[in-house]
Simulated scan of single mutants.
Amino acid sequence: MNIEQFRDYCIAKKGVTESFPFDEKTLVFKVMGKMFALCALERIPSQVNLKCDPERAIALREAYDGRIIPGYHMSKVHWNTLLLESLPPQLITELVDHSYALVISKFTKKLKAGYDAL
């Protein structure tokens, strides 16, 4: 999967917006204003950060040594950095879905109602 395919997959999800809140090189995806994915647009190889359940994050890092690492410039407990081109596309979409679901699961009642109304 390349960075454009990653972007297309993220932006197609319900309630997702994209922006550059940090700098012009880091694309951030949010659902209802809450971050679930970041892309480093100018890094070679392409890197993305995704939120992850802490126990699963450790298992993924062990299973994909060097291709999934602790989140770069993020909480090392709750975020992983993925080297995009070195992983199977199915795994990447599964991890995007996982990150998105984790964020939605933490919505307040007000955010959940807004999300449900979309």
Rank of each mutant, 00 (worst) to 15 (best):
M1L: 08
M1F: 11
N2A: 02
I11M: 09
K14G: 09
V16F: 00
S19Q: 07
F20D: 02
F20V: 03
P21A: 04
K25A: 11
T26D: 03
K30W: 06
V31K: 01
A37S: 08
A40V: 03
A40M: 08
E42S: 09
E42N: 15
R43F: 06
R43Q: 13
S46R: 06
S46H: 15
Q47K: 15
V48F: 00
K51R: 13
D53F: 04
D53H: 12
D53I: 11
P54V: 03
P54H: 06
E55W: 11
E55Y: 08
A57Y: 12
A59E: 12
A59C: 03
L60G: 14
L60H: 11
E62T: 09
A63W: 01
I69K: 15
I69Q: 08
P70L: 07
G71A: 01
M74R: 05
S75E: 01
S75H: 03
W79T: 03
N80S: 04
N80M: 06
T81M: 04
L83G: 09
S86C: 09
P88R: 08
Q90S: 13
I92E: 02
E94Q: 14
L95N: 06
D97A: 07
A101H: 14
L102Y: 08
V103Y: 00
V103N: 04
V103D: 04
S105Y: 04
K106T: 07
L111N: 10
K112G: 06
A113G: 13
G114R: 10
D116S: 10
A117M: 12
A117R: 14
A117E: 14
L118F: 11
L118N: 06
